[in-house]
Amino acid sequence: MNRPIIEISNLVKRYEMGNEEVYALRDVSLTIGSNEYVAIMGPSGSGKSTLMNMLGCLDTPTAGTYFFNGQDVREMNDDDLAEIRNREIGFVFQTFNLLPRATALQNVELPLVYSGVGKAERQDRAKQALEKVQLSDRMTHRPNELSGGQRQRVAIARAIVTAPSIILADEPTGNLDTKTGHDIMALFRSLWEGGNTVILVTHEEDVARHARRIIRLRDGRIESDKVNPDA
């Protein structure tokens, strides 16, 4: 395996729901290396969203350890986590999550705003990212002037603009038709081929089939972790 980026061992996430304690993750251990293409699968309630939030440093575990690029995530405060998300992680969401009032270019620039890149360089890099997703001709359009597939491409451009260590996609084709979904998956594939680390979270076998490694979750535990024979 390549250099590990994500090293998780005995991860537990517990929520308090009133007086009840709910375990979203129980004892999950996992290592993901650089330039892997991983799908995390499982039915709803299996804990895959919680795991994605953990991996994406949006949330912190109750117990266990999580090292990201060798850094202990449990030791980090909110601002450290924000910085990791900003520099190391590119998110792609099912609902795109673009800022509705900003243009495609401004949306892609946004992560760079928070890492303090100057305006000229910011626009330059955002344009390059939009070129990679073949949207150079839609830079000044706002999300409501774009199709679903185009919106997801803008979101992917935003995810890759900081050259992150991992791209973390949560049901990226969930809101798209089959044809457009295929195009988006092809885009992820080319990003992976270009040297990126891609982690998909999905409940669709069709989507997971694109990945090289499939991790299945059930009831907060890893059920299986296999190399994808179809890929």
């Binding site: 910085e83 998300r85 520099r87 992560p111």
Partner: peptide, 14 residues
């Protein structure tokens, strides 16, 4: 929007 901004790296201060 705040969630999106935080996800892509906005700090509390931002």
């Amino acid at each position: 929007e705040i969630g999106i901004r935080k996800a892509i790296g906005a700090r509390r201060g931002s």
